[in-house]
């Protein structure tokens, strides 16, 4: 068993535990490389099926290629696709691109709040109709009690302190001081009502592992990660106004792997192109309140 085999096996085990033990399960799909690897692992775990809905939080500022790629795969792979959005904030233009608030407050509105409401069912859920290819209002607003998320511990300090099964209370808050023990492949899967759990099957994967796996499995990923001839590509994907491409001429996963191992990115943090991390409190403050 090589390292990728070990990582894959543990992630599949966690996905199957979640599916077996958590009643209303969903998976966040940000369309980025990590959550796409997660989706692929789900297809492996369930032998080609994905037996829970995929939730995408659309801030409306995503790069257009991301949305096209999402819908193409959702139709091709027969996914139950749910999209949620903080429409009130968008209508009131309470966003950073509209110039009214700071970046991290914008994340809190368009991501954390939208996510919280979509998970609880208080916000509108839109579901992809596989016959028409368009999104319709979903009449199912049962709260999701478990959410599978593709965060990795090498991304950022507070993520390095996470659990595979990480409980969140009624207000979506993360109590970092008293996290449950996890050992011998046993996880916290019992919860009082009103709370939910975040499940993190990719916690032990590094950015390099992700690309090695994409390469090995030949997983389709959005073209924004690759240089299209202009000497630029995205290393980490988010909203267009807050995510900057990096200078790189890698055109495919194999070239990205070489670049990560020995090239210019060998010693530079992956999220260095993500502006919201640099503000007051950074990602830890955002994550305590429900950010991924």
């Amino acid at each position: 068993m090589d390292q990728l085999d070990q990582l894959e096996s543990r992630s599949i085990y966690i996905l199957r535990e979640a599916y077996s033990q958590i009643e209303n399960l969903s998976m966040l799909w940000s369309i980025g490389k990590d959550s796409t690897v997660l989706l692929w692992l789900a297809r492996k775990a369930f032998f080609g099926h994905v037996p829970f809905p995929l939730v995408h939080i659309d801030t409306s500022f995503k790069i257009p290629e991301m949305i096209a790629y999402r819908d193409k795969l959702a139709l091709e792979w027969g996914l139950t696709m749910i999209v949620g959005q903080n429409k009130a904030a968008l209508r009131a233009k309470l966003t950073f691109p509209d110039g009214k608030i700071e970046r991290s407050q914008c994340c809190a509105n368009l991501k954390s709040k939208a996510l919280k409401d979509t998970l609880s069912g208080e916000g509108e859920r839109h579901r992809l109709n596989h016959q028409t290819g368009s999104y319709e209002l979903d009449d199912n607003n049962t709260p999701y009690t478990g959410v599978i998320v593709g965060v990795r511990s090498d991304e950022e300090g507070s993520r390095s302190k996470e659990r595979y099964f990480s409980p969140r209370d009624k207000n979506n808050t993360w109590d970092i001081g008293s996290q449950p023990p996890e050992f011998w492949s046993q996880y916290k899967t019992d919860f009082p009502s009103g709370t939910h759990v975040r499940i993190h099957p990719l916690l032990d994967w590094t950015e390099l592992n992700i690309w090695e796996y994409i390469h090995r499995e030949n997983i389709p990923t959005v073209s924004l990660y690759y240089d299209q001839g202009k000497g630029r590509r995205y290393r980490s994907l988010g909203c267009a106004p807050c995510t900057k491409p990096v200078c790189s001429s890698s055109r495919n996963p194999a070239e990205i792997i070489t670049e990560l191992k020995s090239g210019q990115f060998a010693n530079i943090a992956e999220r260095s192109g993500r502006a919201q991390d640099k503000e007051m409190g950074g990602l830890e403050a955002l994550r305590k309140e429900g950010y991924m």
Binding site: S153, D154, S158, K161, I176, G177, E284
Partner: peptide
């Protein structure tokens, strides 16, 4: 000690995972 409480109190509260490699192998 990445958490703000850890830095202000000067202690480790929760396990941290970090990645590291030598010529021989990769470590968590």
């Amino acid at each position: 000690d990445a958490l703000s409480d850890e830095q202000s109190q000067g202690i480790t509260i929760d396990i941290a995972r970090c990645f590291f490699k030598t010529d021989k192998r990769k470590y968590l």
